[in-house]
Structure formats: C-alpha cells, structure tokens
Design a binder for these strands. Structure first.
Lengths: 132, 132
DNA sequence: TGCCTTAGTATCATACAGGGTACTGATGGA
DNA sequence: TCCATCAGTACCCTGTATGATACTAAGGCA
C-alpha cells in the first residue's frame, strides 16, 4: 500500500505533513538557537540575544523574533523608555518544543560519533588502497 | 551567564550545534518524507518512492537519496538488470531518527490545533471590532 | 524498425532564505 | 554641541535549495 502526502493550507502556510509544519515554525538557521537561549536564560533583551549569537544581523534577529512571536512561541514585552528596552521570553508553547530540540541534539551527537568512527575506518581503507 | 554557539567542522560539514547537524542530515523538503516512507514500507524501489511523493523530480529524488546514502541513513541495492532495479531501505541509523520525526509530528499536530483555535478566536474578535 | 521500460544525468532556470549596510528616534552624559 | 545608547526599519544583494526539461543505456516485444 502506497501512502501519499497531500498538501494542507492553514493560516497562510502550506505543508504536506505535521513534520514539515513543525520545521516551518521552529526550523531554519536561527530559530532553534533563539528558543534554546531563551530557555536557558528565561528572559533576554534584544541586545543580549544578539550577543549570544555572533554572526546574526539585527535585521535577521528582528525577523526571526517577529515570526516566533506571531506563532506565539515567544512573548515580547516593550518598556516605553529611552533608550528602548524590550524583553523576550518563551511562552508555554515555546517551552513545549524544547524536548524535541534535546532529542535532535542527542541524535546529532550520536551521528557525529558514528561519522568520526567512519572517518577513521575510511582512512584505514584509504591506506590499504594506496598499497595496492 | 551568556553561552555562545561556536562553529564545528566535520567531514566537510560545518555546524554550530548538534541540533543544526541533525537538521543538515535529515532536514530539508524531501528527506523526512523519504525516510518516513521507507520506514512504513521497509523496502522501496526508486520508481515506487517517486510515486509516493507527487511533486518531486527525478533529479531531486536522486540527489536526496545519494546524500542519505552517503550519511548511511539508507542503503541502496542495485540489481544488474535491464530495465534497472534499485531497492532502498533504512539502515539502523536511519531507523533511529524515526522517533524524532514522530515527536515533531505530534508537536505539529498540537500546534495546528492551537492555531486553528486562535483563528476562531480571531474571527470572534474581528466581529466584535466590526460592531464598535 | 521502432517503442516501451527503469533509474538515473546534464543543463539551464528560479525562488526564497539569509545577509550587508545605512538610517532612525528620544534621551543622558561629556 | 556632539556622541553614545538600544531596538529596531528600509533597501538592496547573493547563494543555495529546488525545479523543469531533455537526454541516456540495454534489453524485450510488436
């Protein structure tokens, strides 16, 4: 029996399975890192978040934060001060995704180990080939 | 205390954390679907795999399969016949990633539910706003 | 002779995620 | 008077992932 993946549309988003939906919401280059740091520190200001992620630009950080906020994974509290102060933290929904990150992190660790083992084996075979 | 993400290099791949490594190996538009179908059906030929994924091109399917094979998540058995026959199946490493997919799938389902609820609420507020 | 099959390659085209740089506003301090 | 602060926006650019299309090999069959 062959199962097909059909396309769903919801709230301007389209996806063929829940896995893909999850990736759209919490995947990408920066979102997991943002969520993970917010989980570690509970509350972070925009500038502090930026410091934890060397390489991200203000433009990208703003964009990712806006999307996470729109999906209600994080909450944004702006204090009407000058200079501005804005604090970000995880919502309950945001916290619920952390165990998945940890599972993926663990899998990545095991994968790295197995690749490291493979590389050593590869070198062995290489030297054997070189002898022939 | 602020924690930083440093970049690692392994086997021509670069990543800042194990989560990112995992995404590089099993993320993307097609790889999860390929792995999931292989898990359901145990063994699939190239053509059968293609039929389960309407929308994928041969070029993309080949590319994804090659990468998954290089990372040893799937195994490829080619029979020397004409027309050709090639069978794909999950390796042990490939099977080990399935529980993560299921966790992401469940999270996606819950997220969809909560968004659907939000949409209904949104409509409610909209009509209230319209009255004012 | 010509057409069907399968599992691909090769070539060219495109969309979108992500990135670089400059600019803003209101205030406190030198 | 000038500069620093913070949390952004506006505008433009690039690279990679992905896609469309055409082509191949070797045999069976009409």
């Amino acid at each position: 029996m062959i199962r097909r993946c059909d396309v769903k549309e919801l709230d301007g988003r389209s996806y063929r399975c829940f896995f893909e939906l999850t990736l759209q919401v919490v995947g990408g280059k920066w979102k997991p890192i943002i969520l993970y740091h917010l989980w570690l520190e509970k509350v972070l200001r925009f500038g502090a978040l930026k410091k934890t992620m060397p390489g991200i630009t203000q433009r990208m950080l703003t964009k990712q934060l806006r999307e996470l906020e729109a999906d209600r994974l994080i909450s944004r509290v702006a204090y009407n001060e000058m200079p501005p102060r804005v604090e970000y933290s995880l919502t309950e929904l945001g916290e619920s995704v952390i165990p998945i990150f940890q599972a993926m992190r663990n899998w990545g660790m095991e994968f790295e180990k197995s690749v490291a083992g493979e590389l050593i084996t590869g070198e062995h075979y290489e030297s054997v080939d070189a002898v022939e």
